[in-house]
């Protein structure tokens, strides 16, 4: 199973790095984060030496970056017809889905590794807390992982990359911003809690400041597992057809 996963992963990573997509998405991601952090967060001198401000933009930036990473995954296979070949190969559907997910996750990991330049360069201005930053990166990885599964699932539903991009962005926006409803509508407390529970941003907020709550990590694992499961089921249904 591991060798099959590796094979799919390798194929996916190759497709990311053989096209300009990985480089462009990474470059845009780094620039967007830098613009937001350095130009929209006030004077650096009045900020604490932590990356809280930086990570607070992650949920919003990921709304556009994650779909760009995942839009090709299944949509391109379907457009070019390689999905049928894939489904006839001796791979289980779950292996195909997980292999693609791991490849996208590794690309995301690489993008995040490059953001380490921010605290390293800023350490000339202040002393950063290693533990807090580590906690924040852990949170972003869980959050990003869950977002990727949404993108992969949506990509499996269509053969059009643009539709895949837009639909993923829309779903992510809804999942990120759903808890704003509580600011405008007074729900009964159980409904308000459910609305909060559904919100990706609500669960990311503590992680983004270095407060690791197991329930938030679990939330992203559960969401990720749920969308991967749906992705697998989409493939199974396609196979039956």
């Amino acid at each position: 199973m591991i060798s099959r996963l590796k094979a799919i992963m390798r194929k996916e990573l190759k497709s990311y790095f053989n096209s300009p997509i990985a480089y462009i998405v990474t470059g845009v991601f780094l620039s967007a984060m830098a613009v937001l952090y350095f130009f929209f967060s006030g004077d650096i001198a009045t900020r604490f030496a932590d990356l809280r401000g930086y990570f607070s933009y992650i949920p919003w930036v990921f709304i556009l970056i994650i779909p760009a990473v995942t839009m090709r995954s299944w949509a391109e296979e379907q457009r070019s017809g390689t999905d049928e070949v894939l489904l006839t190969l001796p791979f289980r559907e779950a292996e195909l889905v997980i292999g693609k997910f791991i490849a996208a996750f590794l690309l995301l990991g690489l993008m995040l590794v490059l953001t380490v330049v921010v605290p390293v360069s800023l350490s000339a201005l202040g002393t950063f807390e290693f533990g807090q930053i580590l906690g924040q990166y852990l949170g972003v990885l869980f959050y990003g992982g869950a977002c990727l599964t949404v993108g992969l699932f949506v990509s499996a539903l269509t053969k059009n990359q643009i539709i895949s991009f837009l639909a993923t962005a829309l779903i992510l926006f809804l999942l990120v911003a759903v808890n704003f409803l509580n600011a405008f509508i007074t729900f009964p407390s159980a409904v308000a809690s459910a609305v909060n529970w559904l919100s990706f941003r609500y669960h990311f907020e503590p992680l983004g400041k270095g407060l690791i709550e197991l329930k938030d990590l679990f939330f992203f694992v559960i969401m990720g597992a749920f969308f991967l499961f749906l992705n697998v089921k989409i493939l199974v249904i396609k196979k039956w057809r």
Partner: peptide, 24 residues
């Protein structure tokens, strides 16, 4: 199993404050 795990994590969550000063 996912629903059960979700409910369980809400009931028995553990919180780790990654800041050395225990800010949170």
């Amino acid at each position: 199993a996912l629903v059960f795990a979700g409910l369980d994590s809400c009931l028995y969550s553990v919180r780790i404050d990654a800041t050395s000063s225990g800010m949170f």
